[in-house]
Amino acid sequence: MADTAVQRETVLSLRETIARIENRRLPGVVRAAKAADPGGFRQREEDEPGRKALALGVPDLDDLLEGGLPLEGMTEIRNAETRDAGAAAGFAAALSVLCQRARLEKGEPAAPVLWISQSMASTEAGMPYGLGLKAFGLDVRGLVFSLPRTIKDALWIAEAALSVPSFCAVILEIRGNPAALALSESRRLHVRSRAGHVPLLLLRQSGHEEASSAFFRFLVEPAPARERPLPDGSMLRGSIGHPVFHVIAEKSRAPAPLGFFLEWNPHDRRLYPVEPLPAAAAADPESAHSVARLSASSGRSGRAQALGELVAFPRAS
């Protein structure tokens, strides 16, 4: 019986530890804590002040995030393949723009965005382009870019930046699932982010799902853009509109992953929910100006030649 009680207590302790790391509550554990502390000398989790969040303007997504993007803590953004790195980086940049705008709307002094890109990640997917980020809505005058060589250097820079309230957001871009960024390092970054009141966006390039201390984790994929609207309300056929992201909430309090199609408008600096395009329209959109892809060669017609008769030759061996 004693061995059974010890095992039960060990399992309960592990559950409490996991719940604290994932920042969630276990009703049975909370009741046990109250019973163990009848005098109320310890601060319980439900007595702690609520975390600050930035509403993203998408009601369903804000409800899932319990108010919006956490402004004190870590949020993980990943893409499954290297070719989708641009979409994940674009979504992280859009969240950074919202953080910049929120400070200005509150009347707080402007603060830069720190983008830390480990050299292997920037080598595989390229570095952020200033003019592109400016067109995307980010104030590049308030952007600090760091290019450390190793993962340990990137983690050191991130921890140092989160220790001082000098940035409105910190983006940490890494490649894959390095051993130097395990659960313990993730927990340390999360605690530093909460203590420094600076949101941390962990941008994991071509990474897999793994244990993390982040409040939420998103899988970001590119989605077909809509056509550009005209002043009369019609759409310009064959045009390319604002970027669209397929965002899947992999880690949240929802019982199953939820997906959203979000369009980023760099002029309004807002995210808008959109409906997914039909598969046929997304796969082969019809161009407004149908022309030959290649000009005809000199002295030849531009059309494909019809096949002649097929002759079956006997096999040589």
Results as ranks from 00 to 15, higher is better:
1 M>Q: 14
1 M>V: 08
5 A>F: 13
7 Q>N: 09
9 E>L: 13
10 T>F: 11
12 L>D: 02
13 S>Y: 07
15 R>M: 10
16 E>P: 01
16 E>V: 03
19 A>G: 04
21 I>R: 14
22 E>D: 05
38 P>F: 04
39 G>P: 00
39 G>Y: 05
42 R>P: 00
49 P>T: 12
50 G>I: 03
52 K>A: 14
58 V>W: 09
62 D>V: 04
62 D>G: 10
63 D>E: 13
64 L>Y: 05
65 L>M: 11
66 E>R: 15
67 G>H: 08
68 G>A: 13
69 L>T: 05
74 M>T: 14
77 I>L: 14
77 I>W: 00
81 E>A: 14
85 A>M: 06
87 A>D: 00
91 F>D: 01
93 A>F: 12
94 A>F: 14
98 L>Y: 09
98 L>N: 12
100 Q>L: 08
100 Q>E: 04
103 R>S: 08
105 E>T: 11
110 A>C: 01
110 A>D: 05
111 A>N: 02
117 S>N: 09
122 S>I: 02
124 E>W: 04
124 E>T: 07
124 E>G: 01
126 G>N: 02
128 P>R: 01
129 Y>K: 06
133 L>G: 01
134 K>V: 00
134 K>R: 12
134 K>W: 02
135 A>G: 12
136 F>W: 07
136 F>H: 03
136 F>I: 01
136 F>L: 03
138 L>M: 11
146 S>H: 09
146 S>M: 13
150 T>Y: 15
151 I>C: 04
154 A>H: 13
160 A>G: 15
161 A>K: 03
162 L>A: 07
162 L>C: 03
162 L>G: 06
164 V>T: 11
165 P>D: 03
172 L>C: 08
175 R>P: 00
177 N>A: 07
178 P>A: 12
181 L>T: 05
182 A>I: 03
183 L>F: 06
185 E>R: 10
191 V>Y: 04
192 R>K: 12
193 S>A: 15
194 R>A: 13
196 G>N: 02
197 H>K: 15
197 H>F: 11
204 R>M: 12
209 E>G: 07
210 E>C: 13
211 A>D: 10
212 S>T: 15
216 F>D: 02
217 R>K: 15
220 V>M: 10
222 P>L: 11
222 P>F: 05
225 A>N: 06
227 E>R: 08
227 E>H: 06
228 R>W: 10
228 R>N: 02
230 L>D: 01
231 P>W: 07
232 D>V: 08
232 D>R: 02
233 G>P: 02
238 G>T: 04
239 S>E: 10
242 H>L: 06
245 F>Y: 14
247 V>T: 03
247 V>R: 04
249 A>H: 11
252 S>G: 13
255 P>D: 07
256 A>E: 12
259 G>F: 04
259 G>T: 13
260 F>Y: 15
261 F>H: 14
261 F>R: 05
261 F>S: 03
263 E>P: 00
263 E>D: 01
264 W>P: 01
264 W>K: 07
267 H>D: 12
270 R>L: 06
274 V>I: 06
275 E>A: 10
275 E>Q: 06
275 E>D: 04
277 L>R: 10
278 P>W: 08
280 A>Q: 10
281 A>L: 15
281 A>P: 01
295 S>H: 01
296 A>H: 08
296 A>I: 05
297 S>P: 06
297 S>Y: 01
300 R>G: 01
300 R>T: 09
304 A>F: 03
308 G>H: 07
311 V>R: 14
312 A>P: 02
315 R>M: 07
315 R>W: 11
316 A>R: 15
317 S>I: 08
